[in-house]
Design a protein around this nucleic acid. Sequence first.
DNA 1: GTAGTCTAGGAAAGGGCTTTCCTGATACGC
DNA 2: GCGTATCAGGAAAGCCCTTTCCTAGACTAC
Lengths: 345, 345
Amino acid sequence: MTTLADVARQAGVSPATVSRIVSGSSKAVSDELRERVLKVVEELQYVPNAHAQLLARSDRTTVGVIVHDVSDPYFAEITRGLQRVASERGRLVIICNSYRDPERELAYVELLRAQQAEAIILAGSGYLDPAFTKTLTAQLAAFTATGGRVTVVGRHELVGDAVLPANEEGGHLIASAVFDAGHRHVGVLASPAGLTTTADRLAGFRRAAKERRRTIPTRRIHYASFDRDGGAAATVALLDADPQLTALIAMNDTMATGALAVLRERGISVPGDISVVGFDDMPIARDLTPSLTTVRLPLVDIGARAITLALEDPHRTPRREMAPVELVMRESLGPPPTTRAPKKV
Amino acid sequence: MTTLADVARQAGVSPATVSRIVSGSSKAVSDELRERVLKVVEELQYVPNAHAQLLARSDRTTVGVIVHDVSDPYFAEITRGLQRVASERGRLVIICNSYRDPERELAYVELLRAQQAEAIILAGSGYLDPAFTKTLTAQLAAFTATGGRVTVVGRHELVGDAVLPANEEGGHLIASAVFDAGHRHVGVLASPAGLTTTADRLAGFRRAAKERRRTIPTRRIHYASFDRDGGAAATVALLDADPQLTALIAMNDTMATGALAVLRERGISVPGDISVVGFDDMPIARDLTPSLTTVRLPLVDIGARAITLALEDPHRTPRREMAPVELVMRESLGPPPTTRAPKKV
DNA sequence: GTAGTCTAGGAAAGGGCTTTCCTGATACGC
DNA sequence: GCGTATCAGGAAAGCCCTTTCCTAGACTAC
């Protein structure tokens, strides 16, 4: 392990001089010494120990992002936006996967505090669990108390700056589209019940139903895991329980993908027999067959805005930016098979 | 910023004692003091400064992984396998996206050296660029010289332990399947020419052709970016230049997705008019319509093995493990439309 | 020629933690 | 009851770097 002292000795100068040259201090150093030192640095392949540097100067340049799983396209897109801004500003991003485990999430917050991170970005749905929320809030408060910044994507139960996907509104948008296409028997492929995202999107569905004097009965909501196989399982369960369904609303595109797979397997035509809609507008949505009608969330942009908030000077009061949603009509939503008379106006 | 000294003062003990309690030293401490200290730790929300710890004890517990882009499913899967093993062994993973920029890649290697990473894992195709390879090799050598470990996934031009996807063999496998289905006019949607992965997979295609006394003419190979839009662009180019093509071999599933999109748009039936095959067997491959015939690479496992190699004791000679490939027959490959007489045996 | 102003470079004090070494106290053996 | 082994806890050195403060020399100005 070559140290700064080694370089100094070899070059016949003081450690202070080497430090100034290597870390680009504002203090002037003669060209002669500079050259001599750089030559030795090259020779010894010297790289300053980042930990020692951080200890000595205590400026923070790394940003931590805690997501459920980067390999999930939802978080992958957010992370991409985040990374872009981070490298523009010379920050190193540490990506942490919590795999939706509150314990691990806490562990990562602690770890990032220990790493002297400049900011922590929490992305993904929160948990409807007051005890956990309280513990997490306390940890984050300790972090911000020492100058750390926190921003969250979603998770409106936490303090701090936030970028909030308009989940309720998106739910309302997509469910309205489904109802307005004429569907009356609508099933919901729901993500796990403990997540705020689930609650919000469902609330949007319900509002759309209520506006039309409908309801979404509990038996037509099936909770499953937030992935393709969860979507498939929920589809099977709903279909078997209620064969007259003409539309399935999935809580995200991945679950919708699972639904399409099951329907194709059973020879059920989409949208001929049953319509399917998703949420998020992940890149793959347009390449499915039929292409997926969904609600677009500007994920890359959300990530970029989250980190931008985190790196700006803090406001006195936490800021909350809404991320707009947008209906994306594609092929997977159509009218129900038995075409009823259009709604009376 | 609460420090260990603060805790010590508040609890009325020496810093040494606090350190022993907080970091779980082997040295015994009385229950009374332990309790007193932990209470203060809780009160002050103390978290030890990781940089100071690493400086003082100099054991390394973080592993860096440099990939082209985690949001690409190929790397997402590898990273997932890697993360799993890493957290089992109590390591923190730092994910770095190089976005296929050699400069940035070097910068990240340097950064990870500075962070005192325990191991660096480089995943993804190498560059066919001797000058760059030399510089990178030098950097990595400096890292290993100070006890760091390096393993690579792919990139056989670099030293160190390696997990090598059988790209050539996979190329041979899939191209053989295409030729054996009876296709004679085959186009290749190729990833960028400077990557070793491209070269290897193409070599496999060519070997399969040669065994059948065929060739793949250069005009039927179109190089494009390694993503969906690249695949789409290459498809357009090949189709326009050579309308009699009956099969397209894509260098990965993402490019194949782009091809399917173009073909659907043009009303060309797959595999009725044109067959399409991919590479990698990403999760989405089975959910496309038609489902994609491809070559399966055990990506999660590759990631797990890469980090396992990195955390094991080093061998005297670098180890190279091959990752097996496996043909996955699905719907997108069929016989060419004008069914010719089957090959004479 | 002397006083005063710059300048480049070095000495040394941290920064927060771990760990070796040491001390003082208790327990043990005879 | 004395010497020795054992143990809990503290003092202090060290990990590698940055940065403030100082010094010595080179200039300028009169």
